[in-house]
Simulated assay, not measured.
Amino acid sequence: MASVLIYHVVGDLTVGKPELVEFLETETVESAIQAIGESTEGGIPVWRRKPQKGINENSEMRLQRFVGILNPLDIVSFLAKDCCLQDQEKAMKTPVSEVIVPNNSLLKEVDPATRERKLLVM
């Protein structure tokens, strides 16, 4: 059995990734479906609107605005409810804030120069 210690610099793991786009919690389920379809990830990050324009946000302020990640399963589960099946047009116009399960612990901001160590056992 061989063990390999691998060091990663976080910046190396994010090279080539697109900027994080803020999808607002006031957007509709319909627009969320489109955004998820266009996304290269398995879901889209959902945010509260910035309180004021022109203010520089620190990480704590940004974390407070982060709602969670909306994925296709969340949307399918919502659309499968009886009330949504009865009025599909209304369901598609529902704000994603009524669909997403808030979990701001999914957002972690780290310095791109942070090193991560992993021990792989083969």
Rank of each mutant, 00 (worst) to 15 (best):
1 M>T: 09
2 A>R: 14
6 I>L: 14
6 I>P: 13
8 H>A: 09
8 H>M: 05
12 D>S: 15
13 L>F: 08
16 G>N: 09
20 L>T: 15
22 E>I: 02
22 E>K: 12
26 T>M: 00
27 E>K: 08
27 E>Q: 12
27 E>V: 01
30 E>L: 11
36 I>A: 13
36 I>C: 15
37 G>R: 15
40 T>W: 04
40 T>E: 11
45 P>E: 04
47 W>S: 07
48 R>Y: 08
48 R>K: 15
49 R>C: 08
52 Q>V: 11
54 G>L: 02
56 N>F: 02
57 E>G: 04
59 S>N: 07
60 E>H: 06
60 E>T: 11
66 F>Q: 01
68 G>T: 06
68 G>C: 04
72 P>A: 02
73 L>S: 14
73 L>V: 12
74 D>H: 13
77 S>V: 00
78 F>K: 02
80 A>I: 00
85 L>D: 00
91 A>I: 00
93 K>H: 05
93 K>I: 01
98 E>W: 07
98 E>N: 10
98 E>G: 01
98 E>V: 02
99 V>K: 08
99 V>I: 08
99 V>C: 08
101 V>I: 05
103 N>Y: 06
103 N>C: 10
104 N>L: 03
107 L>V: 11
108 K>C: 11
113 A>K: 11
115 R>C: 09
120 L>Y: 15
121 V>D: 05
122 M>Y: 15
122 M>W: 12
